[in-house]
Design a protein around this nucleic acid. Structure first.
Lengths: 235, 235
DNA sequence: GAATATTTATGAAATCTTTATGACCCGAGG
DNA sequence: CCTCGGGTCATAAAGATTTCATAAATATTC
């Protein structure tokens, strides 16, 4: 699927760099590493990686600052590695321009899935028609309608806008602020309750089991994400 | 096949404009060209093309922005020409309201097929008889008359124009703005009440049960659309 | 002056916003 | 280890607002 995509790993701990390098090379990625933000910026300019993985904790220039600096010069997908529990930092990272994050400790499968998702970020469209399809769900942008197994689903304007926006950035974590700003406007950036209500309505209409959503996932403390590939749940 | 359908080609490179013009005219289309988004918008308002072909890369206003602007005022099918590999842009274009895209480099056959497909989706008055038929309804565009089960229905000029327009783009949601602009003109784009009155009159004349319309459906908060596939009615 | 178009008025329907409630998670303090 | 309290989240439902359908009055056109 992604033979030889270039990945840059930025971490100050040599052990972690090594470990990631070995594991990712096993998955056929071309890996380069950097031990600091400065190195990373230079490496990005020279090597043009397809994905950058950044540890949140770095000496001198932390992950958030680095993310910001990268974003000033490149739209390359950035995945942040964050310590468990630091929701605030996650949000900060996402709003500085990171595309996704993985919470430590994480499995290689998890990281790998996020890398794939970042590489594939383009929404899959069927043929040339403006229709989005995934699992049982299809959304026709021309007709402004959504179907679940061929069955038409009635969506209000706001519900449709929200769904469309989430599909557009599917796979990516979208913070409350980002969603609220996009759909309702800057002034509503703090009305997280709106979001809960409308996410709830969308789930009620789209999800088989609203308690275990397939499409619209919650990232507690951060926001929501439209899942790209329906995963089987472990539980 | 499509005698004299009007096509607008929007591209800033004179060579490509020329090439497309010549090739499409050979296929019996009436071709007009525009070198910029601004020109294109004006040409659409004045010439009412049946299909618009837009290069994604344009100076000042790019293809996506142009697509969005066209969509604000017209449901005309838009085919986007995109450079190879720019998946993200394609998605963006389709979500902005484009109907189809063709990746450069492309053959004339390919483009031609897409044009035909786009024309087919709008109800063209091609074929031997300019008559639209669906379920019990038939509209003769040459004689400007509509019949319900062979019985002639009296339509005022505005009612007829509105019906014809909706049939032409049947299946698509037509926003209030688009309908008002098309039938009454730019200046009336906010008079949604006109629409309600005339839609109501059309329904009274066409629909068996105005409370459960078969043909003219309401998309609350968005607009109206002419239903393509007749639904079985229950009860 | 007859047909048509525009405007006004009103109740109904759909949607959006707000409030209320309980579940759940997690850390602090007993 | 347990319980408490604060926070986020999901959901239902009440209230407010907007949009819609319809009838009818008025204006315009030919």
């Amino acid at each position: 699927m992604s033979p030889g995509a270039r990945i840059l790993v930025v971490d100050d701990e040599p052990q972690i760099r090594r470990s990631l390098q070995v594991n990712l090379e096993n998955k056929d990625y071309a890996v380069v590493t950097a031990a600091s933000g400065e190195e990373a910026l230079e490496s990005i300019a020279r090597r043009k990686p397809d994905v950058v993985i950044v540890d949140l904790v770095l000496p001198s220039m932390d992950g958030i600052e680095l993310t910001r600096r990268i974003r000033d010069q490149s739209p390359v997908p950035i995945i942040v590695l964050s310590a468990n529990g630091d929701e605030l930092k996650k949000v900060e990272a996402l709003e500085s321009g990171a595309d996704d994050y993985v919470t430590k400790p994480f499995s290689m499968e998890e990281l790998s899935a996020r890398i794939k998702s970042a590489l594939r970020r383009t929404v899959m469209l069927s043929g040339s028609e403006p229709i989005f399809r995934r699992a049982g769900l299809s959304v026709n942008f021309e007709r402004r309608e959504a179907r679940l197994q061929e069955e038409l689903i009635k969506l209000t304007p706001t519900e449709y806008d929200l769904l469309k926006y989430m599909i557009q950035y599917s796979g990516k974590v979208l913070t409350h602020r980002i969603l609220l700003t996009a759909i309702w406007g800057e002034a509503y950036a703090n009305q997280a309750q709106y979001l809960r209500v409308f996410i709830g309505q969308l789930r009620k209409k789209l999800e088989r089991n609203t308690a275990r959503p397939q499409y619209i996932l919650t990232d507690p403390g951060v926001g929501y994400r439209f899942e790209t590939s329906p995963q089987e749940e472990n539980s």
